[in-house]
């Protein structure tokens, strides 16, 4: 299955890195050209800007960097940014799984339309999303109107941030899961049922192990997208210091003061935290993929 073929190309790549390229002739053509292309492309698009960031931030000594990154407001903003992003990614992992499952498994009228709808958050300018959500969830909005009597305020509170982040990161989970779910044949479920598994057991023991690595990938993508989001959040957050100020807003605030170095310092801190978290999720994914492989392969084939 597609999801599990991952480790192999990696081995091939590491082999290639240690063995002289000229000595081995590959069966698949075009390796040198495409690898060169990949390296140049990634360097231009990702490594170059990132190293620029690092160089700019390195103008600060470690003590200064620490001062910029460890203020009360900064800590509060990390808590809000990472907390809201985590919540949003978790919500999307649950509901995105359901959406993907429904879209793949059940044919029904309007399925294609709904399928296309999932991509809208990708296409919509985030500021538009933020303004629309703020209007919907404000005290007199279509949704906020019904929540306010219950004492629930969403727009202009930290909850609003979660709503905005959930909106913009939904497609990542759904689009990651769809191909993997497509690969699971319905016969697998039938077999599980005929062997006496309950529905819940079928889901937990048979389906979930196969889906889990992709679910984690989707979660990670959604999470990292949500951490960096600025455009939609500032319109619904309320932006109160210590309460609903996200880290990207603090970065903008530094730029407003023409403090580019301070802004890059904050950005580096965010990037480092994200990197460590992504690494941790990748490790978890690797562990999950390996742990479940024998069981899943046994029941799947």
């Amino acid at each position: 299955m597609r999801g599990r073929a991952h480790p192999q190309p990696c081995h091939r790549l590491t082999d290639a890195m240690f063995a002289p390229l000229s000595r081995r002739r590959r069966v698949l053509p075009g390796f040198g050209l495409t690898l060169g292309c990949t390296l140049v492309y990634l360097s231009l698009l990702i490594l170059l800007p990132l190293s620029g960031l690092a160089v700019k931030a390195s103008q600060l000594s470690f003590a200064e960097l620490w001062e910029v990154a460890s203020g009360e407001r900064a800590w509060a903003s990390y808590r809000i940014t990472f907390g809201a992003a985590f919540l949003a990614a978790t919500i999307n992992a649950c509901f995105g799984l359901i959406v993907a499952w429904v879209l793949v498994r059940y044919p029904f009228p309007g399925r294609r339309a709904i399928d296309a709808l999932v991509d809208l958050p990708f296409a919509l300018p985030t500021a538009v999303a933020g303004i629309t959500l703020a209007t919907l969830y404000a005290g007199n909005g279509w949704i906020g109107r019904h929540l306010e009597p219950l004492g629930v305020k969403i727009a202009f509170t930290p909850l609003g941030i979660v709503v905005a982040l959930t909106f913009i990161s939904l497609p990542f989970v759904v689009r990651t899961l769809q191909p993997v779910i497509e690969d699971i044949e319905p016969e697998v479920e039938e077999a599980a049922a005929s062997l006496g598994a309950s529905r819940w057991q079928t889901f937990l023991r048979v389906l979930l192990p196969g889906i889990f690595p992709a679910l984690l990938t989707g979660f990670t993508l959604a999470f990292s997208r949500a951490i960096g989001e600025y455009g939609s959040v500032i319109f619904i957050a309320g932006n109160m210091p210590l309460i609903s100020e996200i880290t990207p807003l603090l970065i903008i605030s530094k730029l407003e003061q023409y403090d580019v170095v301070g802004a890059t310092a904050l950005a580096m801190v965010m990037l480092s935290i994200s990197f460590v978290m992504l690494l941790a999720v990748n490790a978890l994914q690797w562990w999950a993929a390996n742990r479940h492989r024998p069981g899943a392969a046994g029941s799947g084939r």
Partner: peptide, 8 residues
């Protein structure tokens, strides 16, 4: 917008 449309 917040003041006029959302009436806050």
């Amino acid at each position: 917008t917040t003041f006029m449309q959302r009436r806050i």
